[in-house]
Write a protein that binds this DNA or RNA. Structure first.
Lengths: 283, 283
DNA sequence: CCCCGGCTTCCATCGGGCGGAAGCCGTCGG
DNA sequence: CCGACGGCTTCCGCCCGATGGAAGCCGGGG
């Protein structure tokens, strides 16, 4: 960034493209430097990645550490702290879903013997709220809190199809990131598929993220029939199961889950869902 | 807080106990107002609870919302955003554990038919990283990211027993919060129990949080035999199972999990744990 | 030995965060 | 109908504390 402006110290002001971040923005910049590929960073790395002077980074990191937002690893590097996780679990949608959903997901999984996902929409992304892997240990792509663009996953398509028209237009107008040869990147195709999803209530996406798999997604509705989440099953393309074979179980589970959610909101204080009405395929 | 200082406006300065928070501190104050019992708040509630003027709260909340740390509910209130959850899942210990642990926990659970917990230490608290409930739907006490003081849970005792001496002394010197009649609140008793845990490698706590249940905890070790987590089983007191009946399975699972973790660290880049060596009670 | 990179502490300055105030909106009650 | 109220949003001038430069510390390596 600062490649010898030394020659003309006079114009360093002009070139240095002032920093218009607010104090709060700088704090968030620090948090922003951590991602999947940067779990642990030294202070100087943070300062570089966040584009903050070392002294500022030092002070902010210190305050964040005191609060628990960051923690110091044994090797002296910094990482996101458990306090952030604790705070994150207070997100209301996800809190409610994680309360009732696991049982339904487990039943569905044992019925179809495949990976099962429950997701909600956050802006233009789909976020995993709960997932069950067939052979646990492969949490790779579907980590809790994991994000994908809406157009790349079955649950994303379901959520996009039922999102406010404004959101749909924004997504259709924005560049559609490609992950495989089969990722749908053409707005017109996407528009057509969305219409189809709206008509049928089911989204089927083939190899849009991972080659060799396809996913089937359906909506989960909360009180007043609003779509609050999406449920999906991911299958191997050369596997034994077809869309039509899993669809009944998927739909039944989604509807049972919807019913369980629907009962939860009349009272403002979450009036215990009592017994999860009907759980198809219950053990 | 401001009970009619109006009479003597002159001394409002003196009484008003200046606010020594930094800008970053105020940002964190805003996040701090959200907890288990305050999932959604209006702007004014936030401003009151965080002790910020309305205009300041307004601006900070706006910035946090733009970043995704907060979101606006349909009713116009504010809540923690999914971005926080996403960030929280980057916490390294928890990330590694959640990658490999689920399979082991599932095996253990199906072997003992009881609730199973995996926890790590964060300061003077124990934090749940993963848990399996016998009858799903009762995630109540053991929500992911949930916190308890170290002296109140079986996993906490295990982690405290293996924590640096400094931590142990701090906890022993601090007031030990009581939850039930059986919560251990006497430092001397705690010290004795810790010694016992260190000697035997097992912690058994009866009704220290919830009446009618007891829990058995054992350490989980990572590379270089450092204790990185604790594994526990929670049983009904009048149930059929005794400590001695679950201990073998618990120990075997903890050791298998330790081995799986141990293999993961030689290379600095997490060199895939390949196959989870031996999983006792595997299905 | 010195140099280098990373970290920590200190301090004067100045820009932007702060809070007061005014105005907007919807709701309730007289 | 109007007025009061609570909650929210916007605006703006002042002052203070965040900022970043600089100096000093530590450890490793050439």
């Amino acid at each position: 960034m600062p490649p010898s402006t030394g020659d003309h110290p006079a114009l360093h002001e002009a070139l240095a493209a002032e920093d218009h971040r607010t104090a709060a923005g700088r704090v968030l910049s620090v948090l922003d430097v951590f991602d999947q590929d940067h779990l642990e960073l030294t202070l100087s790395e943070i300062s570089r990645r966040a584009d903050l002077t070392l002294s500022t980074a030092h002070r902010l990191v210190g305050e964040l550490r005191d609060w628990g937002a960051l923690e110091r690893t044994t090797e002296g590097r910094y990482a996101v702290g458990l306090r952030v996780l604790e705070l994150g679990t207070l997100e209301p949608q996800m809190l409610q879903l994680r309360d009732v959903a696991p049982a339904y997901l487990a039943d569905l999984q044992s019925a179809v013997k495949a990976n099962v996902h429950l997701s909600v929409r956050d802006g233009h992304d789909v976020v995993y709220v709960e997932s069950l892997q067939r052979h646990s240990g492969a949490h790779v792509l579907s980590r809790l809190g994991g994000r994908w663009p809406l157009h790349t996953t079955a649950t994303g398509m379901v959520l996009l199809a039922s999102a406010p028209a404004a959101v749909r237009q924004e997504v259709l107008a924005s560049p559609l990131k490609r992950y495989t040869d089969h990722t749908i990147t053409d707005p017109d195709t996407l528009r057509r598929m969305l219409a189809e999803v709206q008509r049928t209530g089911v989204a089927v996406l083939r190899e849009t993220i991972t080659l060799g798999t396809f996913a089937v997604g359906v909506p989960v509705r909360g009180p007043s029939d609003r779509v609050v989440a999406a449920l999906s099953v991911t299958l191997k393309i050369d596997g034994s199961l077809t869309v039509h074979q899993v669809l009944p179980a998927l739909n039944a589970t989604a509807r049972a889950l919807s019913r369980a959610l629907g009962t939860a909101t009349p009272g403002t204080s979450p009036s215990r869902p009592l017994g999860p009405s009907v759980r198809p395929f219950a053990v």
